[in-house]
Amino acid sequence: MATFPSARKSKSPVAQREALEGYLFILPWLLGLLIFILVPIIASFYFSLTSFEVVKPPIFVGLENYVRLIHDQLFWQALKVTCIYVVTSTPLGLILSFAIALLMNQKVRFVSLWRTIFYMPTLVPVIASTMLWLWIFNPQFGLLNTLLRYVGIEGPLWLGHSQWALPSLIIMSLWTVGGPMLIYLAGLQGIPTDLYEAAEVDGAGAWAKFWAVTLPMMTPVIFFNLIMNMIFAFQVFTQAFIMTQGGPRYATLFYVLYLYQNAFKFFRMGYAAALAWVLFLAILLMTALVFRSSAIWVFYEGEVRKR
């Protein structure tokens, strides 16, 4: 959270007015927080201290759920699978989506058509795209293995094999980079043209301009995409839920999938809530670390405000 200039406790009327206006601006969110978010979140914390079978009233059990978690092999497996997914799919997705955004920002013919096409995968309903990927990964006739066979390789079983199932889902995740790409594209629009002109006057080539202008100016957007992709990667659920049910042999047992199973299939909402709070702490820790690091590498034009 080091990105903010810390609010000093000056009591000048100007500062007081600004503070009041600040609260007014965030008032909609504060109200939403109080009405819709805070109580459910606190309730979920209370659930984590209970044995709650969903259809029976919760019974207070103290820290039992948290203790049990330590001895639960599937919890560790889910944590492992999810961490692997986060540390691979997040950077890969970030780089790929940035590269595509840069490409889509080039002077090329029919650029709006290409931009639409590259965003297409996120527009198609999940259910349709999942069915499509199931047959891309089909070991016998699927697109991937057919292509591999052309070059003389017998492809793996993909989703059917415990060593390949997770990589398969990571590959699949790269296909929906349209979302972050869009945000990068909007970010690229905000870079003042005069910065490039100045760089050109200094004799900078395309590569140098990228490093000296584009990249630094994009850091706030990269930062945003990094944080959000990380949070979303931690919470990945749908693909495994539809395609693998966590298998084979728990190879794709994502954390939130396991949490979901506990909550609504195994009647252990209390345990699920404990899982949720551990996940919350893990994400919070990672986010805080990234936020702290941001002081070094994220550049805000609007940040420095000394009066």
Binding site: G160, S162, R249, Q261
Partner: peptide
């Protein structure tokens, strides 16, 4: 009463038979 839970465990393991793992 814990049908879904043990079903899940059984199918995670037996699916490895069919793939030859």
């Amino acid at each position: 009463p814990d049908t879904d839970e043990w079903w899940a465990a059984v199918s995670q393991e037996t699916s490895a038979i069919w793939s030859g793992e």
